[in-house]
Design a protein around this nucleic acid. Structure first.
Length: 819
DNA sequence: CGTACTAGTCTTTTT
DNA sequence: GACTAGTACG
């Protein structure tokens, strides 16, 4: 009995085909990680390959960690020498050793998206680029995709001739890159691109890695971009023992530069490649797979394959539709609680997936309401929080004096009276002399002479402080250093004085950062290495949201469909399946027909996350960015045959023609939404529970629609009716007025109006609670209403919260719920 | 120099 | 609705 006996024939082929290029097309849930880990074991145990000669590359730290763990179990001795890491971590390791050969310092810092944006701001200012016409994001996006495609600033510039915008971007790219270099910093894309550059300009470095990595494996190959492809191609070009694993149907990162051709054309690049298909799925029931297959088959130009399972048909897919997103969220939370109470599933076996991060909020409210433990993956990255970035900027300043961005970030944080004027003076000096900000600071102020002014003294103090931290770095542990930084700067002390909930949260985050630093230090010590500050900063720069997710806690997971790739759950809820949300407006209206195919692959990924039960939900009405939208059922739901659903479209109210089940094409968001708003108002007045602003926005949408179709008289009627109503002093009307008057939008949809005017006074007049009632707030929990005060725009509510004490808040924003 | 308020933007997805 | 950058004012 060997460890390979449990593999199926195709999987065995993948494991035993060790020489030459191999393409493993692995459908969802077909055991690709098993194949990769067993392959590594086989190379070491049976082929006598030195673990040192094996490289396995993944996209996320989480995937790398899991692979490492499984390899350790299978291999035993020597497995720690196998190089298992993400693309970015691999490249950073190489660059730390050799980047000085292409003109950077080996202790370079890594800039995150925020950092890149501040640099770009400086660039735009310097080059006089009007950021109203050409946004920083747009420029950064263009630069990022240039780097993904290995296009240098100069190459970009020479291809830009004649195109005004492109030339501006080219100039920005050149300046941006030279600023990064001056700061001794790399952005995310540079990490890959500079490694390729290094390999191309230093053949001896490339050769040393080619000799080391005799066997290379790449996971999630469908997500590689051109730069990553080139990196792998270079590394593998000597022995060509390259095994790539992927699924073209799960390619969902085009926006990040992933090139699906890398996997589709693998056999053209490597004609001798062995192609192995894994089509048996070990994860899901046949009904779920049939649904997934039915959806994905609508895509053209994919590698032909079909998933199958020897599991039974299983339950049909649950399809539910709701009047609004609140009801949708309540249903999902309720259903999960039911499963947990009846001991059908633990919380940890449930995941709710959605298209955009913003959709998590309503779900969270419902989960809090029912006391269900949950975790949201993603959203605001821990390391992107202000307080964390501040502390890290101190550490970066101590570690790498050339990082201007970090120094400028903290020179006056916490406030120490060094203002914009001083900063600008120093920056001007630095620019004139072509030196770093910190060097300018020391040259100007680090003199033996006593300070001639208060502000000068403050700067002198700052320099002394940084210098003492640097000394400390040499003698103390990292833990002592970070505690010293926090103490000396009084960072936490200031937060304590603020004392509010937000400040408490920030302090907790800082504590968590210290914990992370301490455990980093311990880990390194256990490995017998010295924990360096640069090492910590580097690890921190390369973490992804999904990395911190573990199945240890018994909690429901909420995340985007993108984050869910690679995971599986007994119960999966796909929420917000509406044309306009998923697929998104952007892709529906895109000129590029392949955009919708990428969304469909995302749907395929979502469906195939489910092992046992898949629930798909749809809400007729949903608030997006403070704007109410009405969308039809997602076209992807319609691609699933009725017989696989427990609640078919035609039998479902949501699917009836009243709300327009036809997917729409090339229609503006407002136009579309207004059309459906009208339908909805016709059948049902605007609900009293809806916020005033929601009503107003729906009205605006309806009005916009009518305006665009020149239905002037209807619009005027709408407007007149609103202001004729004596009770129209409600918050809603005020909001409508505000929107209406400046934009001179006159009149509108009679149908829509009827519903709105009925609903609006109700919305503002009828608070569902009164003084003395118990209410619940999403953040502060339960409390008692002490006082309600009517103001012109809204109600001012005083609540005594059980845990947080007295708070005064406005009804429209607090969204208190009676309990 | 620091603060408080306002206007504008955002969101499709992220290593 | 949330956040941020920019501005006017003390």
């Amino acid at each position: 009995m060997s460890i390979y006996d449990t593999l199926n024939e195709q999987q065995k082929k993948g494991v035993f085909t060790t020489e030459g290029p191999v393409l493993i097309l692995a459908g969802a849930g077909s055991g690709k990680t098993r194949v990769l880990t067993h392959r590594i074991a086989y190379l070491i145990d049976s082929k006598g390959v030195n673990p040192w000669n094996i490289l396995a590359i993944t996209f996320t730290n989480k995937a790398a960690g899991e692979m490492r763990e499984r390899v350790d179990k299978l291999v035993g001795f020597g497995s720690e020498s196998v190089w298992v890491a993400t693309f970015h971590a691999t490249c950073v390791r190489i660059l730390r050793r050799y980047i000085d050969r292409i003109g950077y310092d080996n202790n370079f810092t890594i800039y995150d998206t925020d950092d890149s944006k501040s640099v770009m701001k400086d660039v735009c200012k310097k080059l006089d680029i009007d950021t109203k016409m050409l946004k920083e994001r747009t420029i950064l996006g263009a630069i990022s995709s240039a780097k993904d495609n290995l296009i240098s600033p100069l190459e970009y510039d020479s291809s830009a001739a004649g195109d005004y915008t492109k030339r501006k971007i080219a100039a920005a790219y050149i300046e941006y890159q030279s600023l990064l270099k001056k700061n001794n910093a790399l952005d995310f894309d540079d990490i890959i691109m500079k490694t390729v550059e290094l390999f191309k300009s230093c053949p001896e470095v490339l050769e040393s890695y080619q000799n080391r990595f005799k066997y290379i494996m790449v996971d999630e190959y469908q997500d590689t971009n051109t730069a990553q492809f080139e990196l792998i191609r270079l590394l593998a070009s000597k022995d060509k023992n390259l095994c790539v694993v992927g699924d073209d149907d799960q390619s969902i990162y085009k926006f990040r530069g992933a090139n699906i051709r890398n996997i589709l054309d693998f056999e053209m690049v490597y004609p001798e490649a062995e192609v192995i298909k894994l089509e048996q799925n070990y994860r899901s029931t046949q009904n779920i797979l049939d649904a997934a297959n039915a959806v994905i088959k609508n895509n053209a130009g994919r590698k032909d394959k079909a998933l199958w399972t020897d599991k039974g048909a299983g339950n049909r897919i649950h399809f539910r539709s709701f009047d609004n997103a609140h009801e949708e969220a309540d249903y999902i939370a309720g259903d999960i609680r039911k499963k947990a109470r009846e001991r059908i599933s633990d919380y940890r076996d449930c995941a709710v997936l959605y298209r955009t991060n913003a959709q998590s909020r309503l779900l969270e409210e419902s989960f809090i309401g029912l006391n269900i433990p949950y975790n949201v993956v993603g959203g605001v990255n821990f390391y992107a929080r202000k307080e964390i970035k501040d502390i890290l900027a101190y550490l970066k300043t101590i570690d790498n004096a050339r990082d201007d961005l970090a120094v400028r970030r903290i020179i006056n944080v916490p406030k120490r009276g060094i203002g914009a004027a001083s900063v600008n003076r120093v920056q001007a000096y630095a620019d004139a002399k072509g030196i770093s900000f910190y060097d300018a600071l020391t040259q100007m102020y680090d003199t033996p002479f006593p300070a001639s002014s208060k502000s000068e003294q403050r700067i002198k103090d700052f320099i002394t402080m940084i210098r003492s931290f640097r000394t400390k770095l040499e003698f103390c542990t990292l833990e002592e250093l970070i505690t010293d930084v926090i103490e000396t700067t009084s960072y936490v002390k200031e937060l304590e004085q603020e004392g509010d909930e937000e400040a408490k949260e920030r302090i907790q985050n800082i504590d968590e950062l210290i914990t992370k630093l301490v455990s980093f230090e311990q880990e390194r010590e256990e490995l017998g290495e010295k924990a360096t500050l640069s090492g910590f900063l580097e690890e921190v720069a390369l973490v992804a949201d999904i990395d911190g997710v573990s199945g240890d806690d018994n909690k429901v997971l909420l995340m985007t469909l993108h984050s869910a790739k690679g995971l599986e759950f007994a119960n999966v809820y796909l929420s917000g399946l509406e044309d306009g949300i998923f697929p998104s407006y952007m892709t529906i209206n895109s000129d590029d027909a392949s955009a919708i195919e990428e969304e469909r692959r995302l749907a395929y990924v979502g469906i195939t996350r489910a092992q046992k039960d898949l629930t798909i939900t749809y809400a007729k009405q949903r608030m997006i960015r403070g704007e109410t939208q009405y969308n039809p059922v997602s076209r992807f739901v319609k691609e699933i045959p009725d017989k696989l659903l427990d609640n078919t479209l035609s039998a479902n109210k949501a699917g009836s023609n009243t709300y327009g089940t036809e997917p729409y094409n090339k229609m503006s968001k407002d136009e579309y939404s207004a059309k459906h708003a009208k339908d909805l108002f016709k059948s049902k007045p605007y609900g009293a529970g809806q916020g005033a602003k929601g009503a107003a926005n729906s009205w605006t949408a309806a009005a916009d629609y009518l305006e665009s179709y020149n239905r002037k008289s209807e619009r005027e009627k709408l407007s007149d009716t609103v202001f004729d109503k004596p009770e129209a002093k409600s918050g809603a009307t005020i909001v409508v007025k505000k929107k209406l008057v400046p934009s001179k939008k006159g009149a509108g949809a009679a149908n829509a109006l009827e519903g709105i005017t009925k609903g609006m006074p109700a919305a503002a007049a009828a608070l569902e609670y009164k003084t003395g009632d118990r209410v619940r707030h999403i953040k502060f929990g339960n409390g008692t209403v002490l006082n309600i005060e009517k103001e012109t725009r809204d109600y001012k509510i005083t609540v005594d919260f059980d845990e947080y004490g007295n708070k005064i808040m406005y009804a429209a924003f607090a969204k208190l719920k009676k309990v």
